[in-house]
Amino acid sequence: MATLEQTGSPDDGHLGDGHRRRDFINIAAVSFAGVGAAAVVIPLVNQMNPSADVLALASIEVDISAIKAGQAIKTSWRKQPVFIRNLTPKEIAEANAVPVSTLRDPQTLQERTKEGKQNWLITLGVCTHLGCVPLGAGEGEAKGDFGGYFCPCHGSHYDTAARIRKGPAPLNLHVPDYAFKSDTVVQIG
């Protein structure tokens, strides 16, 4: 005859140490469901990343032969503006006259340009504060207190080596990877 005592016997799954086989099955099943749910999150998160067509952006080649000393052009690379500037000897001298240790993001003009092409300053036209396009590349635009670029959004001033000198931006304008194909053609990216 089944009694209350008998239902508590090891026969119904108790392993004798207070755990039942069912406890193990419960934990295993819920854990595995958790692993499954975590796996499903991966594609849901990953779909947000740049898609293949956005990533498949070829590098661009730019003809710089028409840019005279003191002039600059804006071009577009990866949907972002790029400034190509032909520095005058005076601007180069100004950039080199600044003691590097006083800069927020210490870099020399030499480090930011190619050997023997120190007059060609090529940077992204994206302010390192919050991503606006600084002024200064176009004819007649404000160049800021240091003669380089000036971001109108929050008042960051860049010097003639596009280094941050004043305002909220933390870094110098980014120098993308580029190479001179010839004296007049530069490949960006």
Partner: peptide, 16 residues
């Protein structure tokens, strides 16, 4: 870049 789905705001960002 993950939020925008690109390096600058573009179609992907507009859609989401």
């Amino acid at each position: 870049i993950w939020l925008l789905g690109g390096f600058a705001p573009d179609n992907a960002a507009l859609n989401r």
